[in-house]
């Protein structure tokens, strides 16, 4: 027995081809959605002079990702970054102004801490939006 159109029978191979096409279309749409959405994934990204050094995928509970990272920024410079349940902080650095160490803790996507003398940037990347979200801040 086969599936018929206007009484004529289709071969099993034809049916398989159509099923394959339908599946492929479905799968690629799903792939697109996954790529565009990325869900609630949050990344902590460390960049030196505009280049990404490390991207850390955070889990729901930040406490599980507790770590301290000492970044060598060249010419003897360093910044120590701490990731904890509080968020991300620069806890130590040997830059002249220490502005990065005094910067508030960050936890929300879009926030960042910058060490200008060491050309270091730590930022949180993600899609989750907060109320009253701004595109940028004039400071």
């Amino acid at each position: 027995m086969g599936i018929g159109i206007k009484g004529k029978k289709l071969k099993i191979g034809d049916v398989l081809v159509y099923i394959f096409i339908v599946l492929l279309t479905g799968l690629s749409f799903m792939g697109l959605k996954i790529m565009a959405g990325q869900g609630d994934e949050v990344l902590v990204q460390i960049e030196l002079n505009g280049r990404a050094l490390e991207s850390i995928k955070m889990r729901q509970n930040w406490a599980e990702d507790f770590r301290e990272i000492r970044v060598d920024t060249g010419q003897g410079g360093y910044n120590t970054i701490r990731i904890s349940s509080e968020g991300v902080d620069i806890v130590d650095a040997n830059c002249p102004d220490k502005l990065c160490v005094h910067s508030p803790t960050i936890k929300v996507p879009g926030q960042s801490i910058v060490c200008i003398p060491h050309k270091l940037m730590v930022r949180i990347i993600g899609n989750s939006q907060v109320d009253n979200a701004v595109d940028d801040t004039a400071s």
């Binding site: 979200a133 595109d135 940028d136 004039a138």
Partner: peptide, 25 residues
Amino acid sequence: LLNLGGNVITIGRRPDGNSWRIGLQ
């Protein structure tokens, strides 16, 4: 949307047609 050390500069509107929303530190 450009930011030069805290100076914010916008060209046009956001691509979705809304104004840019800028926070004042």
